[in-house]
Design a protein around this nucleic acid. Structure first.
Lengths: 338, 338
DNA sequence: GCTGGCACTCGCGCACGCTGAGTGCCAGGC
DNA sequence: GCCTGGCACTCAGCGTGCGCGAGTGCCAGC
């Protein structure tokens, strides 16, 4: 177990390193923090911290920098979440309030987050699985061609073309539309399959095949679209990454283009709280020198999607976490209102 | 007027520089190309080319590199468009053929283009202005709340919520839906305003206000959505940019995040042909060291949107132009089929 | 257990000199 | 008149050597 003072030293190292981007030495530490002890003592503490794997020297006779393990301890035990200041909160509100539709909300959120944290922001579109159905629409485009439009309570719209096995009259379309809506409007997506299970039985045998086709397309939409879309922004902030440029940045850019990777990344958040994955804690190799701060957001109590930022492990964790949390909360409110 | 041989020298310089990324000298030129003259002669030609502003020396006693003006001449007079090979074409076809919807088509196109050219790809979603209306749908969500859904012939769907000034009955909704569709289905967006101008007159005075509101929302959708969405990809290729990294790449990343800038960039294409903007020919300052190759694509004869790539001025122009053109053509075909 | 002192390490920056690719110019030849 | 070989010149890049200073580890003393 590390003594109180040693933890204090670690905290000071993290803070200084994040601020200066340079290895921090014992003397500088005592000058910039009121540790109440001499550099020599700090040196001893540092030696211990290094033995334990919390800090490391890039080379002999240089200062120390935190390791992933050091950042982990810092985040878990030494740092709180820095709340946004009142002006910052006001700025967030006024920026997001002007959004006109879902795309706009997500777009604004991503820009806002990138700007606040000066890092790369990732925002997932509200997920369908936990949403509820606002409305289902069927349009007859041709005798055997129907368009299925699904509208969610988060304002998202999905459409699919359905080729029917047999001609499907306008009256039948209207009938199916009415029945579908009366059954599933306002219900959760997860419950839909069960609710429409016996729908084909209500139709004449000629139409049953078509009804079944439409329903299975509906299910597909629900399932397929669970692999969500997301939006990223602030990639220009990658340039602030470090000195050894192309090597660090390339795999990160590559990872950011792989939606699958990003979704998995965000997916690792457990619903309730905020998740911070530091350096090698990220499964994806290209992100081994980055940290990811993510959190769920939603219109109700439950999260419908995730958002977060990706930055260098050397980041201002309290500030970043504060910004991410504040933005997530307010986006949730916006979604609930609309 | 430059002699034939001097043009040949310029071509050789461009080709070598694009290949090696290093300033090319007179001796290397005569070795790698069959110019039929000695290095000394080439040196004289180079001096002339430099006087005319087609090439430049990064510093004394270094080889020459092409200037923007040099690349311009190269593109205009010395280089053709390099057609894709048969295997490449097959790869394009099979990759795009598997797309399931419009989002997927655009997503695949952007990845394909980035991969083929090893540069940053930008694809604009098919524009609404030149598209035609496939269907308009009105959904009554509440007594005084209607959702407007617009479906285009390119498969794009836009939706808007309309708050009505007065309650609007189901029957009226159905009536308006039917009238709207009979008038504008299959028509070009540009013609819509004129076609629906007198629609309110057909309704009872109670409903006229609502009808007018719906129509004006429809117009807004047409206009607003003319500022198109686009998708970019292959940003990881930016790392291949050059040696003086952060300085070059940062403004480019920033420009790429500004949709407005990109749209303007693509907008500069005149409908028919391919556009190549080299270095300082780009209005946006951040893109002064990049070239943009763009072209329109569409399902018919006319272009409905643009696509292109952004790369260093030192790029393989014939190859890039070939890839861009081939992809644009095939995407057009895909859209026409669906 | 903290502290001041001290010897040691080593990365960084800088000056220096060499090398070689590349140039410009010139006199001679086809 | 244009091309060519020769020659002197320039200069970026690279390797070497050196001094500085930040930072360390260790130890004796309080």
């Amino acid at each position: 177990m590390l003594s109180e003072r040693r933890l204090e030293v670690l905290r000071a190292i993290v803070q200084d390193y994040v601020g200066t981007e340079e290895p921090v030495g014992s003397k500088a530490l005592t000058e910039r923090h009121r540790l109440g002890v001499s550099p020599a003592t700090v040196r001893n503490d540092m030696a211990v911290l290094e033995d334990e794997g919390y800090i490391a020297q890039p080379h002999t006779s240089a200062g120390r920098i935190p390791t992933d393990k050091g950042y982990r301890l810092f985040v878990d035990r030494l740092a709180g979440v820095k709340p946004m200041t009142a002006p910052e909160r006001r700025a967030i509100h006024s920026f997001l309030d002007n959004a006109v539709d879902l795309d706009d909300v997500v777009g604004r959120t991503v820009r806002l987050l990138a700007q606040l944290t000066r890092q790369v922001a990732v925002v997932q579109y509200p997920s369908l699985t936990r949403s509820t159905v606002r409305h289902v629409e069927l349009l007859s485009l041709a005798p055997a061609r129907v368009m299925l439009v699904l509208i969610t309570d988060t304002g998202r719209v999905e459409q699919r073309m359905v080729d029917c096995p047999a001609p499907f009259g306008e009256a039948s379309v209207a009938d199916l539309r009415a029945r579908l809506n009366s059954r599933i409007a306002g219900r959760r997506f997860a419950d839909v399959p069960q609710l429409v299970q016996d729908l084909p039985d209500a139709f004449e045998s000629d139409d049953r095949g078509t009804v079944a086709t439409v329903l299975s397309t509906l299910m597909e939409t629900l399932v397929e679209e669970t692999e969500e879309r997301l939006m990223i922004g602030g990639t220009a902030n990658l340039t602030r990454f470090g000195h050894d440029f192309p090597l660090t940045i390339r795999p990160v850019l590559e990872a950011l283009e792989e939606q699958v990777v990003l979704l998995k990344l965000l997916g690792e958040v457990n619903d309730s709280g905020m998740a911070v994955r530091i350096g090698h804690e990220n499964a994806h190799e290209g992100l081994n020198s980055t940290s990811v701060v993510s959190v769920g957001y939603g219109s109700g109590v439950e999260a419908v999607a995730k958002l977060g930022v990706v930055g260098p492990t050397r980041m201002d964790y309290p500030g970043t976490m504060g910004a991410v949390r504040a933005v997530a909360r307010y986006v949730g409110q916006i979604l609930a209102e609309s």
